[in-house]
Amino acid sequence: MITEAERWTKEFYQKRGWSEYGPFIRIGFLVEEAGELARAVRAYEIGRDRPDEIKRPAAELKRELIEEMGDVMGNLIMLAGLYDVSLEEMMEAHRKKLTERFEEKRYAD
Rank of each mutant, 00 (worst) to 15 (best):
residue 1 M to F: 10
residue 3 T to L: 15
residue 4 E to S: 12
residue 4 E to L: 09
residue 6 E to F: 04
residue 6 E to S: 05
residue 7 R to D: 07
residue 8 W to Q: 14
residue 11 E to K: 05
residue 13 Y to T: 10
residue 14 Q to N: 01
residue 15 K to F: 14
residue 16 R to G: 10
residue 16 R to T: 14
residue 18 W to G: 01
residue 22 G to A: 05
residue 22 G to C: 13
residue 22 G to R: 00
residue 23 P to Q: 15
residue 23 P to F: 11
residue 23 P to I: 15
residue 24 F to W: 08
residue 24 F to M: 14
residue 24 F to K: 09
residue 27 I to W: 00
residue 28 G to W: 06
residue 31 V to I: 08
residue 32 E to A: 10
residue 32 E to N: 11
residue 33 E to D: 05
residue 33 E to R: 02
residue 34 A to W: 06
residue 34 A to Y: 11
residue 34 A to D: 01
residue 34 A to E: 04
residue 35 G to E: 04
residue 35 G to P: 00
residue 35 G to T: 01
residue 36 E to A: 13
residue 37 L to M: 06
residue 39 R to A: 12
residue 39 R to D: 08
residue 40 A to N: 01
residue 41 V to Y: 04
residue 41 V to L: 03
residue 46 I to S: 10
residue 46 I to N: 08
residue 48 R to S: 07
residue 49 D to N: 15
residue 50 R to W: 13
residue 51 P to R: 15
residue 52 D to K: 10
residue 53 E to P: 09
residue 53 E to R: 11
residue 53 E to C: 15
residue 53 E to Y: 13
residue 55 K to N: 12
residue 56 R to W: 08
residue 56 R to S: 14
residue 57 P to N: 03
residue 58 A to N: 15
residue 59 A to T: 13
residue 60 E to Q: 14
residue 61 L to C: 04
residue 62 K to D: 14
residue 64 E to T: 15
residue 65 L to K: 00
residue 65 L to R: 04
residue 66 I to R: 10
residue 68 E to P: 14
residue 69 M to Q: 10
residue 71 D to Q: 00
residue 72 V to L: 03
residue 73 M to I: 10
residue 75 N to L: 03
residue 76 L to Y: 01
residue 77 I to Y: 03
residue 77 I to W: 02
residue 77 I to R: 06
residue 77 I to Q: 01
residue 78 M to W: 06
residue 79 L to H: 11
residue 79 L to D: 01
residue 79 L to M: 12
residue 80 A to K: 03
residue 81 G to P: 09
residue 81 G to K: 04
residue 82 L to C: 04
residue 82 L to V: 08
residue 82 L to W: 07
residue 84 D to K: 09
residue 86 S to E: 01
residue 88 E to R: 09
residue 88 E to V: 06
residue 89 E to I: 03
residue 90 M to F: 08
residue 92 E to S: 10
residue 92 E to Q: 03
residue 93 A to G: 13
residue 94 H to G: 12
residue 96 K to W: 00
residue 97 K to T: 05
residue 97 K to L: 05
residue 97 K to C: 10
residue 98 L to E: 02
residue 98 L to R: 13
residue 98 L to P: 08
residue 99 T to D: 04
residue 101 R to M: 09
residue 105 K to Q: 09
residue 105 K to G: 07
residue 105 K to V: 08
residue 108 A to V: 07
residue 108 A to W: 07
residue 109 D to H: 13
